[in-house]
Design a protein around this nucleic acid. Structure first.
Lengths: 201, 201
DNA sequence: AGACTATACGAACGATCGTGCTAACTTGTC
DNA sequence: GACAAGTTAGCACGATCGTTCGTATAGTCT
């Protein structure tokens, strides 16, 4: 009964290809949309055959799900993780908001924040992809709320503030800054978002 | 030298069909996207043949441009025009913001505000469609700024406020309310937008 | 009434979509 | 070095994409 498993799931070159595909997919999705992105176009974009690329994912939906995961990892690495060392909650909150706007401005994704695009596109398209995007959005919002509460506990944010409401408003500035910047290619919108944050906090 | 023009005439039933097409197109575009919307799907949705529908527009791009125009007319009729009778600028501004949120909640478009979707989708897709969306967004923002200035002149908004900055923040609440409502199907996000507006004004 | 033409349809076009199948090549393990 | 499994490419499929064309219908005008 002791079925010894082969235990050799992935190969190093395969994992490297997978990452290449998903990075490009996340980037292209902010321009063409997560649904508008086609397998053929993606394959051509990274110099790979359509079927070779497809073999990594059983379906387009699985590719989309993996792309959302990858985008989440990029957002975490670019925005969230660099602030984790900051002990003071209010300082960390400010750094987090500023890093988000910098990550938009720096053009980590060609079409601005991946999740801003994805939320607008999959807002009412039921399915696992929307579920994953929803979850990511809630996690982000929960992080903002958590930091507000910690800052309140530390006395650096007014204790009378409703953390949920404050997080909503701060997130709104980020979203509007991203949308304005992408649509008009004008950093002024990001600066307005920064000004709004300074005013509000 | 007097080249007599063909004098393009239109027929009443044609104009009616055109309106039917464009209303459906504007609605479907908030779900499938302005690019993701296909001629075939749109035709089937209104019980018309693909070629019959296509005869109204020379290309998909022209259909998209006309759809943006139609969506603008709907937004104007649902949100802007009903507030034009309000003489007091601050009252009108408040009514405008509230009507926007109500129009999102009422589901005038299945996928929330048409322009919120369109901005995210066409943010960096150069072309006449993006130009038109850009112009619509700027007109909307300019209207907000104009009302803020009028309210300042009337003494009902703090004269020290920067109208551009205040309009940005108010618009941000609307956008975040729309996105949150559509993504989570939760009116609470619209209520948070209302609370943010009350607090800010 | 008849003539004119905007409107609508059916069929078909080449291109591309997502998706399988099969065979070759690479890599890791014994 | 051999064997097994992961990786990639070639080819083809049915469906659908935007678009074109010829033709039948039906509203409008004299």
């Amino acid at each position: 009964m002791a079925a010894t498993r082969p235990e050799r799931r992935t190969r190093s070159d395969g994992e490297r290809s997978r990452q290449t595909i998903l990075r490009a997919a996340a980037n292209l999705a902010t321009v063409d949309g997560l649904e508008g992105l086609s397998i053929g176009n993606l394959a051509a974009h990274i110099g790979m055959s359509k079927s070779g690329l497809y073999a990594h994912f059983g379906s387009k939906e699985e590719l989309q799900l993996a792309t959302v995961d990858t985008a989440g990892q990029i957002l975490a690495a670019e925005v969230i993780e660099p602030t984790e060392a900051i002990a003071d909650p209010r300082e960390r909150l400010e750094a987090l908001l500023d890093r988000f706007l910098a990550y938009v401005e720096r053009g980590v994704f060609q079409g601005g924040c991946f999740f801003a695009s994805a939320e607008a596109e999959f807002g009412n398209r039921p399915g696992p992809v929307r579920d994953k995007i929803r979850a990511a959005q809630q996690d982000w919002r929960a992080l903002l709320e958590h930091l507000v509460r910690e800052a309140q506990a530390a006395g650096s944010v007014d204790a009378a503030e409703d953390p949920v409401q404050l997080a909503f408003e701060l997130d709104a500035y980020l979203l509007m800054g991203n949308t304005g910047f992408v649509l008009h290619d004008e950093p002024a919108y990001l600066e307005q978002a920064r000004a709004a944050i300074r005013r509000r906090l």
